[in-house]
Design a protein around this nucleic acid. Structure first.
Length: 805
RNA sequence: GCGGAUGUGGCGGAACUGGCAGACGCGCUAGACUUAGGAUCUAGUGGGAGACCGUGCAGGUUCAAUUCCUGUCAUCCGCACCA
């Protein structure tokens, strides 16, 4: 009699229906809500259940917002340039453009199985010339603004990927992409002056609704510190060495100085006796890779033979070279206070340099320091007229004092470095610059963009530091747009991050040939309200995107400074024992079979049910049975009442309003796994109630609407079975009524000394005295000794505190 | 080394501002219906015979602690000579 649940039929039917009559339309009146997924790179491996999770989370959220009356911007696109796509193409022996197109079409098919609200009219692909025209345009604008510049410098080089890397792409001295140990290579590189935005990138984090973890990672990456630059005169030389310190309070304790081996003055400080040794040290340091340099626990160094003068007390301090000082941070030179810095202490011990304590730890001077005292807490000693001052105060006010005394200045430093933007690879946006002998670097005129990536026979990386594009003479040789003389094109390409740093802006106007994005559309539809993706981009993509957006704000393209108002990082879905899903591990679970056997709705729900969305979860296929049973049971329950018209009892009303309240509350808190368990609980209760002759239609319909973001096909089908012509998504999200949730009777635990002995039912509005009396009566003989305290927590606990006689 | 997160049955996980620990689901056990069932339904399922014991471990605060405090261990993640 009752229609059984056939997920396949239903899902196909509604997929078609929604295509003909979209449920998410901009009527010009609704408030927009932009919910964005981090767009995928179209790999040949296709999607696994882990990819689904993020897309399901964002779609559930989008549909929830849709039911709350918003017009949803929920686009999808392809991050198709870059190493993964190119490596895949090389491996398969096909042109990356071809393999990319194939992969996009496959993955698109798989993504459509999620039945998300994606608006494919907005689709973008970073390798599409109509798209990368604007990626290049941004670069030209940055060049004109002085933010893109060329520099010859030793950069991070991955010998396996055969390309230069940005600092952000080096993890533990290894390539973020392939795990190969990163070496150094001296190359002429395009750089982006992200450091110019360091302060804004830091301070604007405050206002963002992002996970604290990600904010902290960006804060640490930017690494702002306050301190002073201090000039130390070198004996017998006119030049001074400037050091950077965050601890000006310890200046009296500086007993030596150390310069990075790459420091400009390193060689000139050597005396005739030390010259050979100094030269050798500098050479050795230059040969060390990042990894070697990090792993050398033991400090090394060489004395230059020269001395400098401590500007504060005139003390003569020896000048050393050591690779524990970084050339590209601060001034590349430091003053060393071994008593109050671990590294300086270690160095001083090894090379027998005096250690002078200048901060009294716990008010005392230590005879033989066995370790540095690094805290700025305590009173100054051995510090001339600073004696007796608080170290913490001096640390803060020192920079200004030094500036007034005329041998230094107050400064700020950042760990953030400029962004190495050139890649020596084929599959990327050509950098639109022409090198002219007379005019220098000239950007390709904006009206000539896009500068197309030329066809090439071999797109394998050369490994020489030159891009494969350098081989194409007819492309490289061109004329200067300024003077018309013969000139050469830049042959490096942009990193993968170039397109992904701004793609989210393009979605809302993806077919615009005149502008990156129309101003009105940008104003109306941007920025992104909710951004969902993995935490692995915490400092890469997310920092770059913020930088790009700020730049585009500065040149008037957009009217906001931050691209992503709210960020959610979903946890990873792993295989058994928390092992990351990968082809080589053979533990990849494909969604395809699960969709076929259980349906899209079941898989959507199970993706959420596996665990809290922000944590990693182990995948277990068996669990999907549970949600499938739930869906079937709800279907049967609804179908059982499709012909009935049962009046709502108080119990039903209470259930309905509690259900609305609980589901909404959990959804708002992004506790999506408990939303699912909540549905199961209420469904079980409804099934019990239904045994007494049915449930009122409105309660069941309410459940359908609440379920709609999770199981859109099921809800839509049942909604229509209940006789509704319009889509279920035409509804607005149900609102609960607090009064309807209240019960007249409550179950209360009765405890003796905090231990539950039994449970009784009392009236919800019972007085404390009556509740306690009822509790004591119920306890009877169990209660012995003198009652010394009675506690009643309304509706929850009666606790009788008794003392044994 | 520094910073952060996590730790609860056989498993995934619940528990809002301290208030009946183990919701919900998987798995398992028994039974029912079946020719059969890996379908469905019903009952049970932290440990212990028991009073009781149980949320990584050891303390503390409280009438009451998974929740708060102190210490400690383990796992995972991020940063790592940034002066």
């Amino acid at each position: 009699m009752a229609t059984p649940y056939h997920h396949r039929e239903i899902e196909l039917k509604w997929r078609k229906e929604w295509e003909n009559k979209p449920v998410n339309v901009d009527d010009g009146k609704k408030q927009k809500y932009y919910c964005l997924d981090m767009f995928p790179y179209p790999s040949g491996n296709g999607l696994h259940v882990g990819h689904w999770r993020g897309y399901v989370i964002s779609d559930v959220w989008s549909r929830y917002k849709l039911l709350n009356g918003h017009y949803i911007i929920h686009p999808m696109g392809w991050d198709a340039f870059g190493l993964p796509a190119e490596n895949y193409a090389i491996k398969m022996g096909v042109h990356p453009a071809k393999s990319t197109a194939e992969n996009v079409s496959n993955i698109k098919k798989q993504i459509n199985e999620i039945a998300a609200l994606y608006d494919w009219d907005m689709e973008v692909n970073t390798t599409d010339p109509d798209f990368y025209k604007w990626t290049q345009w941004i670069f030209v604008k940055m060049f004109k603004a002085g933010l893109a510049y060329e520099k010859q410098m030793p950069i991070n080089w991955c010998p396996s990927c055969k390309t230069g890397l940005a600092n952000e792409e080096v993890v533990d001295g290894k390539c973020e992409r392939c795990g190969e140990e990163v070496t150094k290579k001296n190359l002429k590189q395009w750089m982006l002056k992200i450091t110019e935005y360091a302060d804004r990138l830091l301070s604007d984090l405050d206002h963002l609704d992002w996970p604290e973890k990600v904010k902290k990672m960006q804060t640490d990456w930017i690494g702002k510190s306050f301190g002073a630059e201090v000039d130390f005169k070198v004996e017998g030389m006119s030049d001074a060495i400037t050091v950077y310190t965050t601890r000006p309070d310890t200046l009296y304790g500086a007993t030596f100085m150390v310069l990075a081996p790459e420091h400009g003055m390193a060689l000139s400080l050597a005396t005739s006796e030390t010259k050979a040794e100094v030269e050798k040290y500098i050479y050795d340091a230059s040969m060390k890779s990042n990894v070697d340099r990090l792993q050398d626990k033991e400090k090394t160094g060489v004395f230059t033979g020269s001395y400098a003068t401590n500007p504060l007390n005139g003390a003569k301090v020896p000048i050393w070279l050591s690779d524990y000082v970084l050339a590209d941070y601060g001034t590349g030179a430091i003053m060393c206070v071994p008593a109050h810095d671990d590294r300086d202490f270690e160095f001083a011990k090894k090379f027998n340099i005096p250690i002078i304590q200048v901060i009294a730890k716990d008010g005392i001077e230590i005879k033989n320091m066995t370790e540095a005292y690094t805290e700025a807490t305590g009173v100054m000693i051995n510090s001339g007229d600073w004696n007796g001052l608080e170290s913490a105060v001096l640390k803060k006010e020192g920079p200004e004092m030094i500036e007034k005394m005329g041998f230094g200045k107050k400064t700020t430093n950042y760990k953030l470095r400029d962004w190495v933007f050139s890649r020596q690879r084929y599959w990327g946006e050509p950098i639109p610059i022409i090198h002219c002998e007379h005019c220098g670097c000239v950007p390709v005129p904006e009206d000539q963009l896009p500068l197309l990536l030329p066809e090439v026979e071999t797109y394998q990386p050369t490994g020489t530091g030159e891009s494969p594009l350098a081989d194409i003479e007819e492309w490289v040789n061109t004329t200067c747009p300024e003077c018309g003389a013969p000139a050469k094109r830049e042959t490096n390409t942009m990193p993968q991050w170039a397109g992904s740093s701004w793609y989210f802006l393009r979605y809302v106007d993806s077919h615009n040939n005149e502008e990156l994005v129309n101003k009105e559309k940008a104003h109306k539809l941007l920025p992104v309200d909710m951004y969902i993706g993995g935490v692995e981009h915490a400092v890469l993509h997310l920092l770059y995107s913020r930088f790009y957006t700020k730049f585009l704000f500065d040149i008037g393209v957009v009217d906001f400074e931050e691209p992503f108002e709210k960020l959610f990082n979903q946890g990873m879905i792993t295989g058994k024992n928390g092992i990351k899903m990968s082809k080589s591990k053979g533990n990849v679970v494909s969604p395809d079979d699960l969709v076929r056997d259980y349906g899209c709705d079941s898989l959507r729900m199970y993706e959420l049910f596996v665990g809290p969305p922000e944590l990693d979860s182990e995948w277990d296929d068996r669990g999907i049975e549970g949600v499938y049973r739930f869906i079937t049971k709800f279907w049967n329950l609804a179908m059982d009442n499709v012909e009935r018209n049962v009046p709502a009892t108080e119990e039903m009303l209470r259930l309905r309003h509690r259900m609305i309240h609980d589901i909404t509350f959990r959804l708002e808190n992004f506790s999506l796994n408990t939303v699912v368990s909540g549905f199961m609980e209420y469904n079980n209760k409804m099934i019990e109630m239904n045994k007494n002759g049915g449930i009122d239609r409105e309660t069941i319909e309410t459940a359908m609407i609440l379920l709609a973001p999770f199981t859109p096909h099921l809800s839509e089908e049942l909604w229509s079975a209940f006789g509704h012509q319009e889509s279920i998504f035409q509804n607005t999200w149900p609102v609960h009524d607090e009064k309807m949730m209240e019960e007249t009777e409550k179950e209360v635990a009765v405890q003796i000394n905090g231990k539950t002995k039994l449970v009784i039912k009392v009236a919800a509005d019972i007085s404390k005295e009556d509740a306690i009396a009822a509790g004591i009566t119920a306890l009877g003989d169990k209660l012995q000794g003198d009652v010394i305290k009675e506690i009643y927590v309304p509706g929850r606990i009666i606790n009788i505190v008794a003392k044994q006689a």
